[in-house]
Computed example of a mutant assay.
Amino acid sequence: MDLTPLDLNDRRGIITGAGQGIGLALALEFARRGGHLLLVGRTPETLAETAELVAAEGGTSEVLACDLTQAGATEQITDAVASWNSVDLLVNNAGNVRAGRLELTPDADIRSMLELNLTAPILLTKALLPELRESGAGRGSIILNISSGIALVGMPFYSIYGATKAGLAHFGESLRRELIGTGVHVATVYPGATDTAMMRSQNAGADLGWERRSREDVIADLMAALEAGEHEINTAPRSRRAMQQLNISDPLAVDAAIAPGLVELEAAVRDHRSI
């Protein structure tokens, strides 16, 4: 199927997790293209900083500080955009992580990952879909889900995080097929390890298969692919993509490659937590 390029200019939409990392970077990219954005996150101070940067880049924004895992959060967002003439962009970016052995992972952290990484974007997409469909029938609208390379290769000590990101990816794939012909473009991004604040407590390096890319390089690839009309956007390092291909053809070979470094890997990731 031929790709249909997307016009990313003058988008009006919502970005979750907009206070830092990939969410912040995407807010600035859409701001440079004249976007008007609802910046959603938990911390008012970081959202205010993002709003200032958005204005400096030529965009406009509104700020909504809320916890997406709490009851009523979806309604807060839909209320915030109820007066807008259109909504043609939704970026489901907010997420959290807790690495470590499954049996040592607190139940509260498991629920937090499930609720923020998977339940929240599903509920928010459902609530905004009427507006996105309406815009889709005109200039077209975009749903952009930020998954993870771990959705493509399940990694030890990331079983819950991997489950949530794989779930988000399959949600997007199913929804994309459900919305064929509506003008709603559903895209899923699979970033590998990216140099953001979320990774500061993770100490695995390239020697353990966790080569990191700069946020700038990841965002440049992401925006170019989205503008080209791609639906499945892989921004992982080339070294990781070889493992992704091997995981399709011979997953037990991936097991064998990972096994010798398990002890080292556990020590390097056991403090990785952004909840």
Rank of each mutant, 00 (worst) to 15 (best):
T46E: 09
L144T: 02
T43K: 14
G138E: 15
S141V: 08
D109G: 04
A197K: 14
L3N: 06
A31L: 06
R33A: 11
V40M: 01
G209S: 07
G149D: 02
N234D: 11
E230N: 00
L144R: 01
R238Y: 04
A56F: 11
P156N: 11
L114R: 06
I77L: 04
S249G: 12
A236V: 07
G34A: 10
V40S: 00
A31H: 06
R139V: 09
E211Y: 10
A82S: 14
I122E: 02
M155E: 12
L179A: 07
Q20F: 08
R241S: 02
L104K: 15
I110W: 08
S61H: 08
Y158F: 15
G72C: 07
L114A: 13
A120G: 04
V218N: 03
P130C: 05
L37K: 09
G183E: 04
D255R: 13
Q202E: 14
G35S: 08
P156Y: 13
A187D: 04
P44E: 13
D88F: 07
L128K: 04
G136W: 00
M1T: 12
I233Y: 02
T188S: 01
T50C: 08
L89D: 03
I15A: 01
R238A: 13
E103C: 11
V189D: 02
H231I: 00
E227Y: 03
R42L: 05
E232K: 04
H170E: 10
I142L: 06
M243W: 14
D7R: 04
R101M: 14
S214M: 09
S201C: 11
I122S: 10
A151S: 15
T182H: 02
R11D: 01
L102I: 14
T164W: 00
H36F: 13
E211I: 08
